[in-house]
Computed example of a mutant assay.
Amino acid sequence: MAVRLALGLVIGGALGYAYHRLVGCSTGACPLTATPFRAITYGAVMGLIWATAR
C-alpha cells in the first residue's frame, strides 16, 4: 500500500510538472499552473487520490 501511495504522489507530481511545462500559463493568471510548485502539488494530490481509490 505504501508503494502505491508513493507512486501516486511521484507520478502525479511528474504529470503536474509536465502539464505546467507543456500547457502552462503564459500570463501567470492561471491559479493552478502559474507556478511549477502549484502544478506539482495539484498533480501529487490528484495522484494520491487516484492511488487511494479502489
Rank of each mutant, 00 (worst) to 15 (best):
residue 8 G to N: 00
residue 8 G to C: 09
residue 9 L to C: 12
residue 9 L to W: 07
residue 9 L to A: 13
residue 9 L to N: 08
residue 9 L to F: 13
residue 10 V to L: 15
residue 10 V to C: 11
residue 10 V to D: 00
residue 10 V to G: 11
residue 11 I to Q: 11
residue 11 I to Y: 14
residue 12 G to Y: 08
residue 12 G to P: 05
residue 13 G to E: 12
residue 13 G to Y: 09
residue 13 G to K: 02
residue 13 G to D: 01
residue 14 A to C: 09
residue 15 L to Y: 08
residue 16 G to F: 07
residue 17 Y to K: 06
residue 17 Y to D: 04
residue 17 Y to Q: 04
residue 18 A to T: 12
residue 18 A to L: 14
residue 18 A to C: 03
residue 19 Y to N: 06
residue 19 Y to A: 07
residue 19 Y to E: 07
residue 20 H to V: 00
residue 21 R to V: 13
residue 21 R to D: 06
residue 21 R to G: 00
residue 22 L to S: 02
residue 22 L to K: 09
residue 22 L to N: 10
residue 22 L to C: 08
residue 23 V to D: 01
residue 24 G to W: 04
residue 24 G to N: 03
residue 24 G to L: 13
residue 24 G to I: 02
residue 25 C to T: 12
residue 25 C to Y: 07
residue 26 S to H: 10
residue 26 S to W: 05
residue 26 S to Y: 06
residue 27 T to F: 08
residue 27 T to K: 09
residue 27 T to M: 01
residue 28 G to M: 04
residue 29 A to H: 12
residue 29 A to R: 14
residue 29 A to C: 13
residue 30 C to S: 10
residue 30 C to F: 02
residue 31 P to D: 12
residue 31 P to V: 14
residue 31 P to S: 14
residue 32 L to R: 02
residue 32 L to P: 06
residue 32 L to M: 14
residue 32 L to Q: 11
residue 33 T to Y: 11
residue 33 T to W: 11
residue 34 A to E: 13
residue 34 A to S: 14
residue 34 A to W: 00
residue 34 A to K: 11
residue 34 A to G: 14
residue 35 T to H: 10
residue 35 T to K: 11
residue 36 P to K: 09
residue 36 P to I: 04
residue 36 P to Y: 13
residue 36 P to W: 15
residue 36 P to C: 06
residue 36 P to Q: 05
residue 37 F to N: 08
residue 37 F to S: 10
residue 37 F to A: 13
residue 37 F to I: 07
residue 37 F to Q: 10
residue 38 R to V: 01
residue 39 A to R: 09
residue 39 A to E: 04
residue 40 I to T: 11
residue 40 I to D: 03
residue 41 T to V: 15
residue 41 T to E: 02
residue 42 Y to S: 11
residue 42 Y to Q: 03
residue 42 Y to W: 06
residue 42 Y to V: 12
residue 42 Y to P: 00
residue 43 G to K: 01
residue 43 G to T: 06
residue 43 G to I: 11
residue 43 G to D: 06
residue 44 A to K: 01
residue 44 A to I: 00
residue 44 A to Q: 02
residue 44 A to V: 03
residue 44 A to F: 02
residue 45 V to Q: 01
residue 45 V to D: 01
residue 45 V to I: 15
residue 45 V to R: 03
residue 46 M to Y: 09
residue 46 M to E: 00
